[in-house]
Design a protein around this nucleic acid. Structure first.
Lengths: 230, 230
DNA sequence: CAATGTCCTAATGTTAACATTCAGACAATG
DNA sequence: CATTGTCTGAATGTTAACATTAGGACATTG
């Protein structure tokens, strides 16, 4: 019945998917900084496709929160204010808690193996850019292991924003930073494998705090620190 | 009463938004039952627009989870299996917890007034269809009061699915059921107004359980009851 | 008779031309 | 000199024709 265990069978996604990938990469590479206008004719000329797929791709990117668009005013790369960062943090918080619980409750061995593989790949990350990609890939693996389609979609709706945030957060010393991040993720994977819910939740919370504390101040008077006490 | 109380400013969304509204209503009305094919030419003929806006509207509806589409295979109305219902329940769980905390932490008086207004409107609900609309509108107000853009978007990504589920869940005796639901929501609003986090979380959890317990069994061997114990 | 290969049709994917709308420049006016 | 009104140009929104593909019907063959 539900033997569709293929995680990524969407090999052929059509032109729009390809276009979305290329635009996303262009944004990550800094070619289109936050606030920049994404003109349809410009993009269609650059990517050598017509405006149809470009239009569809922009809708896809809007779904990911990378792009904001208004009627007859076109699309622009999303700009992140301090409150946006706080929003990403708090939403990631609850989503990841659910993900961790689901992974521990019922994850297949192959899912845990995929998570471990993602951790292993971190050791070979040379640049900070690459490490961010690995970081995101690790969390992808966790959400995939949760086996919760709508949770995965909710993560994908903020995934690229988190990616962009981690990139623009001009970084720490890349020397021991890379090693530190890798070690941290090893701990996350170990907690999941041990099915230690309490420890896993705590470690994931620490991990998020480390990522978001890179900002000197959140500057959000209404929100305060990203801490939630029951 | 005020007819056009547009909370969000009457943003011009273009034809695609209108088309999406009409298709969504058609799905809710049962014109397109779950699993039905949504053919672009058929829709464009029926709604008297060309295929462009229809195509864009289908992407919008896919974002809401009302529609699934595959490459060169078109779009179909989403079919809900028991595991889908469980997914909606568990995701709603964590999203609403965050929403409740945010509302209690920092909601403007006008937000609370809007929630109360939504509750009042429930008393005038005649049919079950209308009550479901009011129910969704109440939760809309709660998420709006949370003042958390991405949380609102996450809710909107499952909102229509919850709406459809509440409709297809062929219902209880509409006589005292309507009164019961209205009373329940009055309690939710009161807890929010009293800023009683503990009580609000408990009541919201009960509310979800009541909605989802209408099904005799979840039939999901892997998930069990929608209970999460720390 | 079952299996398989080819063809055909009906749908979606893509393109390019046409219509509409917004934002800024520039001039006229108080 | 500030303000307002119109105008223009460039972008998006919309439409219709063209190309491509998936799935099934039918005949062929072992």
């Amino acid at each position: 019945m539900t033997d569709r265990v293929r995680v990524a069978p969407a090999r052929r996604r059509g032109l729009a998917g390809e276009v979305a990938d290329r635009i996303r990469d262009a944004i990550f590479s800094g070619a289109y900084p936050p606030g920049a206008q994404l003109r349809e004719v410009e993009l269609s000329g650059e990517l050598d496709v017509s405006r149809g797929p470009v239009r569809e791709a922009l809708l896809l990117l809007e779904r990911e929160g990378l792009v904001r668009s208004a009627w007859h005013r076109g699309a622009t790369v999303t700009r992140f204010a301090p409150e946006d960062i706080a929003e990403l943090d708090s939403l990631r918080d609850v989503l990841e808690q659910l993900a961790v619980r689901r992974v521990i409750a019922h994850a297949a061995p192959e899912d845990l193996a995929a998570i471990d593989a993602a951790v292993e790949r971190m050791d070979r990350a040379g640049s900070e850019h690459e490490m961010v990609r690995c970081d995101i890939a690790f969390h992808d693996a966790v959400y995939a292991a949760a086996r919760h389609r709508r949770l995965l979609e909710a993560w994908q709706a903020i995934r690229s924003q988190v990616h962009l945030f981690l990139l623009t957060r001009t970084g720490l010393s890349s020397a021991d930073y890379l090693a530190h991040v890798a070690k941290e993720h090893r701990g996350l994977a170990a907690a999941l494998r041990a099915r230690d819910t309490r420890r896993a939740l705590a470690l994931f919370a620490d991990h998020r705090r480390h990522a978001f504390d890179a900002l000197s101040d959140t500057g959000d008077g209404t929100d305060g620190p990203p801490a939630y006490e029951p």
